[in-house]
Design a protein around this nucleic acid. Structure first.
Lengths: 219, 219
DNA sequence: AATAAAATTTAGATTAGTCTAAATATCGAT
DNA sequence: ATCGATATTTAGACTAATCTAAATTTTATT
């Protein structure tokens, strides 16, 4: 029934690689991503194909079936939710959470992941600003970026915030950073990423941390 | 360097089994606990012995070395901390957390587990009332049970509470349930485990949930 | 269209963990 | 102290995942 840790990693690799070039994913690309050999990949592709998780044709490449996609997307969901937990709840830093989430994403329990999601307030983005698929595997595909990723001079519209934590929302309300508002980045501190913003004719400062939680549609 | 999932499970099994009868743990006992065969256990005992994690003599049995004990105790620590998280933070129930913690205990990251410990407020006991070893592997070995496990008519002394959450401590203070106090269970609701207690000559009610966090030395 | 280079697959071996069945050791009872 | 029952180990085989080296297919170039 359940897949092995290794099989799951292959599915996730294929999902990641099928993003950019569109079409079939090559054996070598998977081998490079998983730091393994092409021969090992070929073996596994046969196996996953046998289980109807990928479409595979010899010498051509592989693509996820709907079922393979569902599983791979579920892994991404778990990975990103755990990253949110590690950063927001446990106070760990960006750079140290990936490897841990890489392990946590293989924990098997639907109840767990839905409880975690609720505990975190159903976040839509992980600490890196990447979208978190919902339980049905749908991404928030709105074209948006965290305010923290804008550079000096860029302008955009506030779409929403990453979480529904009351204190944070109140804070933004006071600053006037509400959905629909247009903001322009005046300066960005190179050391701590503090932003000087212009919105509604007024200037204000915003910490880099807060800026990561505000999603912007670039205009 | 790191041990495999399987090796870790063997060490934990040996730790658990060396509790009761004192002395060497038998091959069959381990096989029964891990739902495997005696032959498989023998193979693994040789391997763990090779790695100096257990002392093993053919036909006699096995016992953990100090290093094996350190690792096994670390697993117990992780298991119980995760159980606290699942119950207290995620609101999962008792019965569903064990299997999940069984997976989570194998996640490798010291930083993670220490952050989790801090996040939970350095709990000393898991939701079942079992003691959580600290980072150095020392248990709280006081002979104590959660107040929730007492039956009608039993009496004991409050030793302490499971967590250092301010609101909870204040609540107990108001009720007079402070360390050193003697309490007697008058009645225990069979449906929700609410307790009617007698302490310091006064009667009071306490929720089953709160009672699980109060540790008692039975007199 | 032929051929060299690159990509991919196959063949065969290896390791970790497991199993069954057979062999051996220990223990308890008479 | 021997014998039978029980516990344990050994022998040999299996699966999942991996590897290297050799064989094959695709591709890109002339």
């Amino acid at each position: 029934m359940g897949l092995s840790y290794v099989e799951e990693n292959y599915l996730k690799a294929i999902l990641k690689l099928s993003g950019a070039p569109e079409g079939l994913v090559s054996t070598n690309a998977i081998a490079a991503r998983l730091s393994t050999t092409a021969a090992s990949v070929t073996d596994m592709l046969k196996k996953l194909s046998e289980k109807d998780l990928i479409h595979y044709t010899r010498y051509k490449g592989a693509a996820l079936t709907p079922e393979g996609q569902r599983i791979a997307t579920g892994l991404v969901r778990k990975h990103r939710l755990w990253e949110v937990f590690l950063v927001e709840s446990l106070g760990m830093t960006w750079d140290e959470v990936h490897d841990i989430a890489e392990q946590l994403e293989h924990i098997q329990s639907d109840r767990l992941i839905e409880s975690l999601d609720a505990f975190l307030g159903h976040p839509k983005f992980d600490p890196h600003g990447d979208p978190i698929p919902n339980a049905e595997g749908k991404y928030s595909v709105r074209a948006q970026v965290p305010l923290s990723s804008l550079t000096e001079g860029q302008e955009g519209t506030v779409i929403g915030v990453r979480e529904d934590e009351t204190a944070f929302l109140r804070h933004l309300n006071e600053k006037g950073l509400t959905p629909g508002r247009t903001v322009r980045v005046l300066t960005k501190d190179t050391y701590d990423n503090t932003l000087r913003l212009l919105t509604d004719g007024r200037e204000l400062n915003l910490s880099g941390k807060a800026a990561k939680n505000i999603m912007i549609k670039i205009s």
